[in-house]
Each structure stands twice: as C-alpha cells, then as structure tokens.
Design a protein around this nucleic acid. Sequence first.
DNA 1: GCGCGTCGTTGATCCACATCAAAAGCAAGG
DNA 2: CCTTGCTTTTGATGTGGATCAACGACGCGC
Lengths: 250, 250
Amino acid sequence: MAVFDFDRVSKLAPAVARERSDSSPCAACSVRGMTICAPLDAQEQAQIAAIMSSVELEAGAPLFDEGEAAGNVYNVTSGTIKVYKLLPDGRRQVTGFLFAGDFLGLAKQDTYAFSAEAVTPCLLCRFPRHKLEDLMQRLPKIEQRLLGIASNELAAAQEQMLLLGRKTAREKIASFLLMLAKRAKQRGLADNPVSVPMSRTDIGDYLGLTTETVSRTFTQLKQEGIIQLLPNHQVDLADKEALEEIAGGF
Amino acid sequence: MAVFDFDRVSKLAPAVARERSDSSPCAACSVRGMTICAPLDAQEQAQIAAIMSSVELEAGAPLFDEGEAAGNVYNVTSGTIKVYKLLPDGRRQVTGFLFAGDFLGLAKQDTYAFSAEAVTPCLLCRFPRHKLEDLMQRLPKIEQRLLGIASNELAAAQEQMLLLGRKTAREKIASFLLMLAKRAKQRGLADNPVSVPMSRTDIGDYLGLTTETVSRTFTQLKQEGIIQLLPNHQVDLADKEALEEIAGGF
DNA sequence: GCGCGTCGTTGATCCACATCAAAAGCAAGG
DNA sequence: CCTTGCTTTTGATGTGGATCAACGACGCGC
C-alpha cells in the first residue's frame, strides 16, 4: 500500500546484511532513502539505530495478528509481507503487500488493525513504539516523515477501494500487475519482467476475487499476448500499453 | 472515513454559527474537541484561527476535484460531504462520507487524490495548506494530531476494503447503517433512529453496489423487522443486535 | 393544488464471477 | 526416480447482484 516518491535505491540489501545488522546496520542499509530514516543525518541515524533491532522471518511466518497489542512498528528491508483482515467465517481481505523500504505498523489505538505475515523470507527493522514516540519528540522530522507515509498510504487505499468496488476482474488483474511493476521500479529493480512472489490465493484475497478467477484471467491475458507467464514467479508485461488501458477502465 | 475516539461533543453547531464565524469563530465551535484544534490552548487556537476562513456550500456543490492543486485543507463543522473517485467511463467509488468534526484534504503530493462534494448544505473551516504547514513547525501538536487522524483513517480504509472485497450486499448495508449510528453517537447525536442524508446512488457507490440492490436490501431488512424506513431520511435500527450479527459476517 | 422532475421501489432477465470438481504442474524429500 | 502434497489450471454448473424497464412517491415551484 505504501506509495513512495523518493529517489530510487540501486539494489536490494544482499544476504550478508543479516550478519552486519548487529554492528552498523543502518550504514549498510540499501533502502534507507525510502524509509522513516531518510530525512535524518548521520548523528540522528545513530539515535534511531539505538532503539532498533532486526527481525528475520521465514516464508509464511506471522509477524503479528489483528487485535494484538501494537508494541512495535517495522520497516521491511527485504522480502515481501502481506497484511490482511479476516471475517469470523474465514473470508480474508489482503489489504496490502509490503516490500523493501515499506513501513508497517501505524495503529489506530494500541492494537493492530490487521494481521501481518511473511510471503517470502523477510528482514525487517523493528522499533518499539514508545521509544520511537519519545524520539519523535526530539526529532520532529520523523513525525513529518510518518505523516507523509500515512498520506501516501491513504491515497493508495482510496485507489484500492475504487478497484475493489468498481473494477472488473480483468481490470483488477491489470492494475495489480502495473502496481507491482511501478513499485519494483521505485525500489530500483527491473519493472519488466515483474516478480510476483505471492500465491494466486493471496492475489485473489487482495483483489476481491477467487483463485480460479485470478488464474483464468492470467490465462486470458496470456492468450491475448498481453502478458507471458515465466518460471520463478515472474510475469513478462509484453504489452504494457494494453495493460494500462485495461487497468484505467477505458 | 475518519474514525475518532474523542470525547463526545454535546451538540452540533446551531445555524447561527454561520454569523458568528467572522468574529470569534473557534470559541463557539461545537466540534472543536474532534478536530485538529482539539489539543491546542486558547492562545494557540488564536494562531490557527488567524489562518482559517470559513466556507459555506449548498447541497450538491463541489468543494474540489481530483487532480486539482491541493491548496487547502478543511474541517467540516456542519453538514455531510462525500469524497469520491471516478473511472473514465463514469463508474464512481465514494471513498468516504464526512460529518461535523471530520478532517479533509491530506494529499499525497500537491494534488487531491479524490473529489469532494456537499451532500447536504455544509459549513467548513478552510486552512491554506502552506500556512498550516508553517504553523505546524511551531505547534508540533497539530502535526501529532494529524498523524493520529491519518492513522484512524487508514484503519477505517482497511475496514472498508474488507467490506468491498469480501462482504455480501446484506452485510454491506448492515455495516453501513451501524457505521452511521456509531459516528452519529461520536458526534453526540442520537444513534437511533439514524440520519441517512445521502441518496441510494451515493450509498451504492460507497458500498460497491447499484441503487437497485441498495433499495432491495433495505426493503428486505425492513420486511424482516430489523430496520424501519422513516420519513426525512431517517432509519430506525429496530434490531441492532441482528444488524451487528449480519455486519460481522457470522 | 397541480404539474414536473428527481429519487426510490419493484419486477424480469442476464451475466460475471463464484462454486464445485478434477486434472495437471512442480518442488521437496526419501 | 518416484512419491507426496501443494499450487495452479481447466472444466461444468450455479447464483448474487447487475442490468433493463417501468411504475410510484416525494418535494418544489408556480
């Protein structure tokens, strides 16, 4: 859901970031330009690093559950996280996918409004909420940054409401693929072919569709030559213009 | 969309507030406890009042359009506003209804991400964006308040995504009526019968349904004795428990 | 009080997507 | 290499809500 408009970052953190994280984590951080740390100078970064710890999740591991006490906020440094809400009978709405650089954990009150779970193996920076609040008193830049992030997320949420309420399955899938491409590009990755790490079920739960409809729609776009399904969860956006047109609802 | 958790306000501003607004507007403001002004003392309120002007809209009047330069932010002091996004072919998604006390105008960049229009006659406080930003530098409490508002809106947006993506027409209507009741109560109004000032078309565009389905679902709930349709856009929530159960998705 | 335009309701039919069912990849481990 | 279990795809059928159409009700201006 986070939509950032910052300078691109050249590369994702290499796997070795994991070991570095205890000594001088932020200096090596490849997504700093997109996070809450972006506006801070070296001395200020040291302050935020002092309250930070790192978390590693394997694919499928939960980070927290809806309704749980919201003790921490997070920044994703690598991997993909999904956030979702459930109805009592098990119906699920994925409200967002988060990638490297995305922020996670703004809570209405003291409890999380959604659950979060790793889609792929993930690394995150964890900040205890109360310590970050203390730090915000001294560094209002952080609060400004958070407000900017929240505003972006709000705009993205409204776009998603338009998608869920008024777009067809075909338009939803086209919009989804373009969103992935746009966000990959923002992270400095190739935007074509695009990586689609999440399952058909997750995509369906994000778009308000069933896995079958997601699969059929992919097949249909493939047969029209608009996309190509590649191995390793990659999708080639062969005719991006056609996708734009479909996604826009023309 | 805004979901506040503040003390109730005793009453809506009476119609005379309109005349008062030029002399000492904020002193008479009946929704101050819910707005961005809430955390400010008298001296600080004077500062924010100095950059504020008031706006009056008649029913149906536009406030601003999606894509327009986002020069101002607003607080609703009376009436109902709807905010919405359009697809090129005219399909519409209402992303929120705003009532007295609600804040409006956070923008991702420098343009509004949605259009806003009065549903009923409205009064609003208008703040030029850049002046408010200046003031925020000196009064960080305002920025904190905005972040709190944005967090609440984000949680509400996610709840709405769950509704749009995964709830049935019946569950959507039940959720909608309960949301109106809850927000009326927050404003210190009776929560039953609840006032439903917007048209069936607006409700449909908010819930991802057609007017016909909205109408049929109201009729169905009425025939089951769960609600009663009263004159003057009022709905009596006769069996609130049943509504809660339906809305929750059990 | 009457005509008129808008909004809401109701009915008949249709269709996009869901549901139910099963086959076809595909990755991991023995 | 084959088994095991999951994910994805494909097929057949069902259905909730959309669409198309008409009528009724309400508010407003004259």
